[in-house]
Design a protein around this nucleic acid. Structure first.
Lengths: 253, 253
DNA sequence: CAGTGGTCTAGACCACTGG
DNA sequence: CAGTGGTCTAGACCACTGC
């Protein structure tokens, strides 16, 4: 192990792979296999170093990358833990809509309403987004989030049918906490990363009714694909956000 | 130097500051002072280690953070360079609007039109965003970006008057390349980071005319504050984006 | 070839957490 | 107190760039 193998691509290009990236890949693989679940600690650096016959510094660098990928969280004195959507700290890791006032505490938790939850077959665009075939079984969910009684977010989301078999409107309504927390603890599918496409749109009449606005009210359309380990897409979500009292906050490096 | 001083806050809390962060602060300070300019190399790790009487590994960790902050760019075998907006690689570092087709190459460079450039006094909200006082002199610029002849982006931007003295519509029109590149090479003000607030809005008649749309067309409103070193705000920019052929692309960690 | 950043090691010590 | 992650060092070697 401590003499790293250089990997060679099919073109003969010597694509060098440093040891710590090999270690990172090994850890990722075990995470994907569910060896350590979200919220649980992974073994200590010394422990992993011994397992992989590598110095602590090398393991450290591997974990550094996993931490900056938000796959794992370090806590000094305690250990390194698999990232989760279940800590109430950051209620909604992937939701960047914040109240204009700025203080996220002034705002109570969202009131959630499941409008619909049905099994259906993937349309072409849903299939493409989820790496499925057109016609494959998917689950569709529609829900509304309201703040202080004001409906603010309308979401339609599609999940691949197989991994999410058994998901029903009742279970969704019974669940306390973020939906992504449910996905990871109930269906073993932690969402690690996401990509969004944002547009300004006008709602159709059904959408306008659910958000209690007119069809002339401009709304933010946020199309999100959420991915598990190894960038496998597991959710397509189309959100409509009212931006009269909230805005989408983004930081550019 | 290699016995790091612990800094104590006013409350008596022993806020420990590791050596590499002290080194990072020292390098940042020299960057701010203009000792090394955007695009130029900073001294080698060995060199800096000798200057600061610290091991190479410590300098390395300091530079690692500067690199992940996009303040500096590493190039193996060549050196470490101060980040710049001037490399045509990433034409617009802070612009996240991309064509729906996805391939950024299919699209030619933006056609830029300076609509207006005038000296004026800061309104209350502009002053707050730029950490100025209401009534302080500011420059306002309005411009339109078009792709393949289609006006797509309308931007209004405000700059503090003092650091940008001498900026005129003529100089803006004469400049080839990103505006932020001009700011850093002509005015010594590199923008390092930015924060955006995004909404969906309808344009007023003047805005609609400049973008060749009706006042019923929903547009993306992107309010950006760009910051130099040490998070000093140096630009407020309000953009209106057409999202019929383009979308705002974002990645969530 | 010399100089740069990048990897890896081994060991010492520090700061934080919990029992 | 022992165990965790976090810092720092010194030295060896590797990969990439340009002359």
């Amino acid at each position: 192990m401590n003499t790293p193998l250089n990997a060679y691509t099919e073109t003969g290009t010597p694509s060098f792979s440093p040891l710590y990236q090999q270690i990172k890949a090994l850890i990722l693989q075990r995470l994907k296999a569910g060896e350590w679940k979200p919220g649980e600690p992974i073994p200590s650096e010394m422990d992993l170093a011994a397992r992989f016959r590598v110095s602590q510094g090398t393991v450290r660098k591997a974990i550094d990358e996993l931490a900056s990928d938000n796959i794992v969280v370090r806590r000094q004195g305690k250990g390194t833990f698999v990232a989760t959507h279940s800590e109430h700290q950051v209620q909604y890791r992937f939701l960047k809509l914040v109240p204009d006032s700025g203080d996220l505490n002034s705002e109570g938790p969202a009131e959630r309403t499941i409008v619909d939850c049905r099994r259906q077959r993937a349309t072409a665009d849903v299939a493409r987004a989820l790496s499925l075939r057109t016609g494959d079984p998917v689950l569709q969910v529609r829900r509304v989030l309201a703040y202080s009684g004001v409906p603010t977010i309308l979401e339609d989301l599609w999940l691949p049918g197989t991994p999410f078999k058994g998901l029903t409107a009742e279970r969704l309504r019974a669940w306390r906490g973020p939906m992504y927390a449910m996905f990871e603890t109930e269906f073993g599918t932690p969402m690690v990363r996401a990509e969004e496409k944002i547009r300004a749109v006008l709602p159709d009449t059904a959408q306008a009714a659910l958000l209690a606005v007119t069809t002339a009210t401009p709304l933010l359309s946020v199309e999100r694909v959420a991915l598990t380990y190894h960038d496998v897409p597991m959710e397509l979500r189309r959100g409509l956000y009212r931006t009269d009292t909230h805005h989408y906050r983004n930081e550019l490096g």
